[in-house]
Every structure is written in C-alpha cells, then in structure tokens.
Nucleic acid binder design. Structure first.
Lengths: 270, 270
DNA sequence: GACGTTTTAGGATGTAGCCTCTCATACCGT
DNA sequence: ACGGTATGAGAGGCTACATCCTAAAACGTC
C-alpha cells in the first residue's frame, strides 16, 4: 500500500531541473506511466481502486488538472474507469479485445494493406493455431464450430446471403482464435479476421458471387473438424495451411478484379 | 471551416437538460467525439491544424480544462499532437507505430503472457520475415544490421553492458521488422520484440549473466547476414527458425529460474 | 548569429456543482 | 406492534469552470 515510492520518478523538491524518465513526454504522460508501473508492481487486478485524486496530487506533487489528464490517458487506453460518489475513484479495468482491435485498426487506416499482406500472416499463424487446438478441443467447442458452419453449408440464394456467409466463414476462425490458450496468438488471428471483415476491398469482394470460395472453404473446414475430433495436430495444421493458401489465391484474384475498375480504398469514412 | 456547427451537439444556453449525444460519455468525451466528426467532415489530413485552444473553448462553450482533456483523449488515440509557440496548436497526425504498440501492450497488461507465448509467434513469423528480406536487402541495410551487432560482438564486461547487449540483440530484429514491405508483418514482429524489451520477467532475465544466449544469437545472426548477402531465402528462413527455437529454449530456462522465487505471490486474485 | 519579444500551449490553484452511495427515518401493509 | 419498503438528507468524491502564472517555440531585431 506504500504509494509514496511512486513519486520517486520525479522529485519536485530537487533544486535543479530533474530529468523526466522519458523524453518527449509531458507531465500527464509521465504520471500515467508511473501509475502503470505502480499497478504492475503492486500486482493490482481489475476491480481494484487507485488512490483518490487528492492523494495522487500529493504523492506526485502535481496539480489536479494534471492528474485528471493522466487518468484520462489511462481511461482512453482502457486501463481504468472512474466513478463518482462515495467509494468512487479510478478503478482498474481490463481492456476489451474489441477495443484493442479498433485502436490497432486506426493505426493501419492509412497504411494501404493488401489482401496478400494479411494472408501472409494468416498462412503462418492459423496452422499454428489449429495445431494447438487439435489436442485440446472437446465436443462442446466443436459443436460451436459446427453451428457456425450451418450458415454457409448450402449455396446462397441471394447476394445478401452471400455476404452473410462470408462473414460467418470468418467467424469460424474467430471462434478458433477465442479458444486458443495463447492470448497473443488468439488476438493476432482475430485481428486479422476483423481486418478481413471491415476492409473496404474485402467488403467489395464479398458483395460478388464467389461459389468456389465457399465450397473450398467448407470442405477444408469440414476436414479440420475431423482432425480436431481425432486429435491430429499435424493434420489440422496442414489442412489449415492448405485452406489459407487456397483462400489467399481466390481472394487475391477477386481483389484484382475489384480494384481494376475504379473504387478501392478511397471511401474509408468513419 | 465553419466549426460553429460543431457546438450543436450540446447547446449550453438551452434552458432544459439537453441530452448528450452518447450516454455514458462525459464532457471531454463528447468534445473529443465532436472534434473527430469535424475532422472527418472537413476531410482534414495529417499535418492540418485544429483551431486553437481559445477558439475551441468558445465554440464548445466549455472550459479550458475540458478542452485539454478532450485533446488528451485524441492525443492518446494517436490522432493529434500538440505544439507550443506561434502557429502552434493541435495537429492531426498519423498514429505512430510506437503508440500503437503501447496501446496494444496495455491490452495484454493483465493477460500474463509467457515467454513461450511470445516465442510461439516469433517462431512462425520471424522466418517468414527473414525469407522476405533475403531477396530484397541491399548492402546499406545489411550495414545497418552489422552496426547493431557490434554492440554485442564481444563478451560483456559488466552486468550493465549485459543488459545493453540484450536490448541491442532485440533491436537487430526490430530493424528487420522495419525493413519489411508487409507493414502488418513488420508491426507484429516489432510488437513482439517490444514485449520482450518491456516485460518485467524479461527485464529480470536480462539482469543476469547469460553467455550462451549471446554466443548463439550472434552466431545465428551472422549466418543470417550471409544468407541475406547470397539472397538465399530458404536458408534465411531455416536459420531464423533455428535462431528462434534456440532463443526460446534458453529464455524459458531463465524464466523458470527467475520466477521460481515469486511463486508465493500467486494469490493476487480479485 | 545571439537575444529579446510575442504567441501559444502547459500547468497550478481555488471554487462551485453534480453524481452516487449510505443511512436514518417515515410510511404502509399485515 | 412489527417488518419491509420508500424517501429524504447528508457526505464523499469526481466533474467542470475561471483565473493566473510558467515554459517553450518562432520571429524579428540588433
């Protein structure tokens, strides 16, 4: 509970100009970093409360406004939430994966990612994921996967259903990512899927009929389920690798067609 | 340019209680959302400047502190940067990779990532990266890599140099990631490296002598340079794979030693 | 080219207000 | 008379505003 060691990163009493730990960071930034360190050191868990504003003001030797801006940083980063009232204050929260994906997506907003870029990673990671899951997945998880597949186990009747089927195919992989015990691997895989769901080019592709993509995807995923049921990690990995290679080829072909005309990346409104 | 329409989201002069556009969002949050909308509507590009603080205060009818918190939100999201001085203010900016990495790192703050989790991804991705670079890297890039290696081409004299060498070894891979044409692959690889640089467990590991890690790493990286110079993508990939497997084994061994003393702290549940 | 001036954000301080929780008290049904 | 529910006052704590001073960056001047 000794928060005072926190303020060690910046001693106000020192006569000369003390050097901030990280250059290019202003006061609120320093404070927010210090608070993060403190959370780690104190092994604070989500739900725990930070010291109250007056205490933080005293321990850091900064003004109320600075503390508020520091907390605003942490709040924006999804690390804390503040509440008013008695017993109120800043509470540690876990950043939801969806928010992290959204923040990350804004970073790639101007980066002009191609289908190939995305599938290069998927070809490396999804087989790894499949191999890990093959030895662990039980019937309940497999049932969830099968339930997702019923959305596209038949040819689409309308272009609208076509799109829904594409999204469902991607959600199959989202489920896999959620099942992973390696949170890092799971997050990256689900992020790649979310890119494929949201990118303008991809949405354009999904709005055109593409029977081969569905048939091949369904076939691969069915084989994958079998590999899971027989706990065959090697088979799962190689099936997934073939699945990704096939999808990459088909998607890139569609990408070429779609971008040939006029629109591609220009209308990323937000 | 007419920013006044912005303030329409909240008219202070109205007698009754006006409803904020999004419930659960306090004043700075509303203001930051409004500014984002304004940026989108005005089709502002990176480099453009937002109105100055006094103007924002007037148009939104809020106080200076509120505006500052709103700008802090946008700054944390990587959308703007502020500068002082004449012609200063908040400038729209592209989210730098470093900030994206930092935001992502906070998502994994409570996820208790292990060395193994990180290296599982590195074993998949770094060979991919090496293979891509092998056919593209020229002498100038290779010179940069060699320059990084001189930091650790000799046994460390002090424990402090030991740490600097570990960081430099990681920065070798950071350079590789920067050279990639696949921004996605490059980002993920550099993010994994940044985790290894910042994680508490890793820092503990680096503060202990570990000659084998340095020697093997140096050897692998030298072979890698040769593969780059002969444009041998296959060799580069397999060398990198062996490099990662070796590093994973050594790091996990150290992890076991370092964390042994802290097992009693495991009861930090909520 | 060094130096002072100006412009603008950065930070500190004090005060009023609002939200939420708690607890005591009154009300009501049985 | 008793127990449960509702209502209100109070206090804790963040939220926001107004004002002042400080620091930094650009720009003109000597």
């Amino acid at each position: 509970m000794n928060i005072n060691q926190l303020a060690s990163t910046r001693s106000k009493t020192a006569a000369g100009k003390d050097s901030p730990k990280v250059k290019g960071l202003n006061r609120p930034g320093e404070v927010s970093e210090s608070i993060k360190e403190w959370i780690a050191e104190q092994r604070k868990a989500p739900g725990d409360r930070l010291p109250q504003e007056p205490d933080l003001i005293k321990t850091f030797g900064v003004s109320k406004g600075t503390i508020r801006e520091a907390l605003k940083i942490l709040e924006t980063q999804g690390l804390v939430q503040t509440r008013t009232g008695p017993g109120g204050g800043a509470f540690i929260t876990e950043m939801p994966a969806g928010r992290a994906r959204a923040l990350l997506a804004t970073h790639f907003f101007f980066k002009d990612l191609s289908i190939g870029d995305i599938y290069e990673l998927r070809m490396s990671l999804e087989p790894e994921l499949a191999a890990e899951l093959a030895t662990r997945l039980g019937e309940p998880e497999i049932a969830v996967l099968k339930q997702t597949m019923v959305v596209y186990d038949h040819p689409p009747a309308t272009i609208d259903e076509e799109q829904r089927q594409r999204i469902a195919e991607l959600e199959f992989h989202e489920r896999l990512a959620e099942f992973s015990t390696n949170k890092l691997l799971g997050f990256v895989c689900s992020f790649l899927v979310s890119l494929l769901k949201d990118l303008a080019v991809c949405r354009k592709i999904y709005s055109r009929p593409n029977p081969e993509l569905r048939e091949r995807g369904l076939s691969y995923q069915a084989q994958l389920i079998e590999a899971f049921q027989s706990n065959d990690a090697g088979a799962a990995a190689s099936i997934m690798k073939a699945h990704m290679a096939s999808a990459k080829r088909l998607m890139e072909a569609q990408e070429a067609i779609v971008t040939k005309g006029f629109l591609s990346w220009e209308n990323h409104s937000r």
